[in-house]
Each structure stands twice: as C-alpha cells, then as structure tokens.
C-alpha cells in the first residue's frame, strides 16, 4: 500500500495548479523512491515530468509499484478543500479503485477526508535521454514569467538566443518587435536575483510563447528556474523542489524558422 504524508498541502496544490491546464489525465507512478508523473499535452508538443522523492514526504511508505490514474480537474476540486498549511496524507491500497486524501489542520482539530475515483490511463511513456545542454540559464522564476507574458503581447513565438554575451529573448509580431537581453548577474545580498549562464556553445531556438507561459504557472514553486537549451532538441524548463524533487517541462522547438 501507499501512505505518503506531506507537511504542507501547498506543495501538491501548486504542482497540480501548474500542470492542470497542460495535461488532464495522468498516472501518478508510486514506488519506494517516491511519486513520479510523466504526461504529454494533447498536441504532443510539451511533456511534463514531475518527481517527488520519498524524502519529500515524512513518512513515506510504498511497498510495490502503484499507478494512480487521476483526472487533474477532479484532483483540483479536492485539493481546493485543503488549506495551504494543512498536513496532507495520500493513501491507496495495492490495487486501488480510489485514492484517499486526508487533510489535517496543523493548528486545530479539523480532519477532512476525500476519496477520488481512479481511472485506467493507458499512457505512452517516453524515454528522456540524459542531455548535456549547450546552454543552461538560471534566473529568477518571476523574471522569466514576466518576459514570457510581455513578449506574448506581441507575438506567438519567441527566439531564445544564448551567447557568451548573455541570453536574448526576442519576438516579432504584427505591431512590431521586442527583445529582452539578460547578462550574468550576481547579487550577494539577494541571491534569488542571480542570473547564471552556463554556455558550452551558442544556441538559438524558437518556441511557442503559449506553452512557455503555461510552464510559468509553476513560478510559485521555486524562486529560480533553469532553462536548458541545445540546438535541435526540446527545451527543458526546470523548477527545483525540496528534497531533490523537481517539476520539469519539455517543449519541442519550432521548426523551419
């Protein structure tokens, strides 16, 4: 059986909020190393990959592999019944029909319990190769969100160009064009504001801003975001979570521009 307790329901609430507009029905694959999720959007343009390691829970128990097929809109309805600071316990039997979510208030005696019916989801699982990216940009997640939002007003796509001078987000639309260039920046007093660019070779790729803006819904999960690029491979946008856990989004590049 599975029994996994999170100190704060907020983590799962935010993860589900960040991905529910991109993917609808997902398997949460549980085993002794933690809870993993991989799902593509309907158009097969983007892929979500989440890992919540067992260390992120306390305690965590999962005796055998269990796939919890859950509709994220149903999960959202139930998670709305939890306060951010509630302790969240997820329970399921070995061959479950339902998953049980229990919310306990940390400062009162309230205990809420919900069951969500599970679905059989036949999901294609993709092998994501280990990639040494040509460029990795680490920047404040709100800054990335703002850039995506600002450029979305002008165009449907953005070119991301990394050189040793910095990273340039540029777009071209009907009303004109825009570009934001960032250079490496180190703020000792406020390290959340740091911008780091690791570059082995220059990269230039074009991506859909609609998808990038969707990924940015995860901005509340981490103060900084890693944006990893190599020519002609999907972009990786990674939000690091506590206990070596992560929420990753992969986006296929636009072709032919």
């Amino acid at each position: 059986m599975l029994e996994a307790r999170l100190e704060q329901a907020e983590l799962l609430k935010k993860v589900v909020d960040a991905i529910k507009d991109l993917v609808q029905d997902c398997n949460f694959d549980c085993n002794d190393s933690g809870v993993a999720l991989q799902a593509m959007d309907n158009s097969h343009v983007a892929l979500v990959s989440m890992m919540l390691k067992s260390e992120a829970f306390s305690p965590f128990r999962c005796d055998r592999n269990i796939a919890l097929g859950i509709n994220l809109s149903s999960l959202t309805k139930v998670l709305r019944c939890a306060q951010n600071n509630d302790i969240l316990t997820v329970k399921a039997e070995d061959a479950p029909d339902v998953v049980n979510l229990m919310f306990e208030s940390s400062d009162s005696d309230r205990l809420s319990e919900y069951d969500i019916k599970l679905m059989d989801i036949d999901q294609e699982h993709l092998g994501i190769p280990e990639t040494e990216y040509a460029a990795t940009v680490t920047m404040p997640s709100p800054e990335f969100q703002r850039i995506c939002r600002d450029l979305s007003a002008l165009s449907e796509s953005v070119s991301i160009e990394c050189t040793k001078e910095g990273v340039k987000f540029a777009c071209n639309g009907d009303i004109g064009s825009g570009a934001v260039t960032l250079r490496s920046h180190s703020d000792v007093e406020n390290p959340d504001q740091n911008i780091k660019i690791d570059l082995t070779e220059p990269v230039a790729l074009t991506f859909s801003l609609k998808y990038l803006s969707n990924f940015c819904k995860a901005s509340g999960l981490a103060k900084s975001v890693n944006i990893c690029l190599s020519n002609e491979v999907p972009l990786l946008v990674e939000y690091g979570l506590a206990a070596n856990s992560y929420l990753r989004f992969y986006l296929a590049p636009k072709i032919g521009d």
Partner: peptide
C-alpha cells in the same frame, strides 16, 4: 501548430 515540432520525435518510446 504549423511549424511546431512534436515532442515524440525527440524522445523515444521507453
């Protein structure tokens, strides 16, 4: 989605 790459052409079935 003209000109948009597909993620399945980059990642293998596994």
């Amino acid at each position: 989605l003209a000109g948009q790459g597909n993620i399945t052409s980059f990642f293998s079935n596994g």
